[in-house]
Design a protein around this nucleic acid. Structure first.
Lengths: 247, 247
DNA sequence: GAGTGGTCTAGACCACGAG
DNA sequence: TCGTGGTCTAGACCACTCG
């Protein structure tokens, strides 16, 4: 026989999957669950903790516990690369979001640092070399939707618009092209993990929300890496989409 | 000021990130943590619970609590599609795993069902139409590494080798080609979420392990969907890799 | 047999949100 | 003001692993 709190979690989960408790619905209060199932409050909280960590529910002090909603936005890393923005003021991603009737905006910060080792490896830099980083946070309807940090070797980015702390209308990739380093090959790595505390804060993530990490390394014609872009996407808000044509 | 259990979690997390507690290392026992920090056992367990849900640690009754290891395997959905297996007995994925010096195997089960609504939508089937499903579980070194469920419209798969409950040496896609439905376009959708209880069990996942879900829809020359493949990948064991050439 | 984490109870105080 | 979830304590019994 399963344990008390697991059985309670199972019952509530079933109610959610069966839509007896649809997205947005309020669960019974902890006091009600204690009485309904004749268990202590700690047991109730263990059960709710399970569902919270599965991303199914969210609790707010003073208000109650509710079934979470999922409204994933589709992200096309390929298309955003090919398409030119309609308006010089915004990039392809903002175009797309606006097309879905929602309001995007973003904040950009630029710095020069010694990149973390995994980034340095991808940029083929030794431990001392510096990189320019463009930290970007993307928002939709005032809610943070993604972190995007782009790393460029300092030697390449220096004295270009890449170091400007504002959105580059024609795109950082265009700037790289103009300086003789167009990206002709891209390596994209995607993985899923739980967020680090800093990401949890920057993206205001709730417990039970994993992130998808998309790392794009761009290589120029000589085969040298010129850009590493790390995008951190909350799992409940994004679906990554690729379209492939088969030979 | 943060709460007691959060501060304790922060200290332990820091020790892990700083490599004072490297992967595989044992944490102090709950009794030791109680004494070292003068807190109750419930508080210690709250702190350990935070780290467990972040995927950082794992606890085993009777043994202790340990820092988790990550050994992601790289998966190339594109390449596996292009390359022909070296040996008729195994597919491209098994080839690749074997190339990394590890031992792959898989189990396959075939059934006919009414597909869930999200699959039916992708296959452009109405609510009553049936589909053939090839359920596959992939293992590496005897550990489950991925679930792969492929759905085919019954009309297409009937009376073909697709309905055979064993590995199709030349690949199910080749069978589709032979019956006049080669997949010329692929739509790939990737998202991150926490596993459902059934997936947790089939993949023997530990708490704090999200999954990446990769859904590939294949279309034939007429633009009709002929296959939907749903792959569920434990986040701690996989990195999905794409290589793109830019025009 | 001693030590480990897993489960469960009873009770307490707090900050916050809503009417 | 009252009900909500958030935090914390003290104590108990269990199943399991290890030497």
């Amino acid at each position: 026989m399963a344990t008390l709190y697991r059985r309670l979690a199972d019952r509530l989960r079933r109610a959610i999957y069966d839509n007896d408790l649809p997205p947005g619905a309020q669960l019974p209060t902890e006091a009600q669950l204690m009485e309904q199932h004749s268990v202590s409050r700690a047991t109730v909280r263990l059960a709710l903790g399970v569902l919270t960590n599965e991303g199914l529910i969210t609790a707010t002090p003073g208000r109650g516990t509710f079934v979470r909603e999922r409204r994933p936005l589709r992200w096309h890393p390929q298309k955003d690369l090919r398409e030119r923005p309609s308006d010089a003021e915004q990039d392809a991603w903002m175009d797309r979001v606006r097309g879905e009737g929602r309001a995007p905006h973003q904040s950009i910060r630029v710095s020069i640092t010694q990149p973390p080792s995994d980034i340095a490896t991808r940029l083929e830099l030794d431990g001392e070399s510096l990189a320019v980083v463009r930290h970007r946070v993307r928002y939709v309807d005032e809610e943070p939707y993604a972190i995007n940090d782009s790393y460029f070797p300092l030697a390449l980015a220096q004295d270009t618009e890449i170091m400007a702390p504002y959105d580059i209308a024609r795109g950082a990739n265009t700037v790289l092209e103009e300086s003789g380093h167009p990206q002709v090959r891209l390596l994209e790595e995607i993985s899923a993990r739980m967020p680090m505390p800093e990401e949890e804060q920057r993206l205001s993530l709730e417990r039970g929300t994993p992130v998808a990490v998309h790392v794009r390394t761009g290589y120029d014609k000589a085969g040298d890496p010129v850009r590493v872009a790390v995008t951190v996407l909350p799992g409940d808000k994004h679906t990554i989409v690729y379209e492939l044509d088969r030979p």
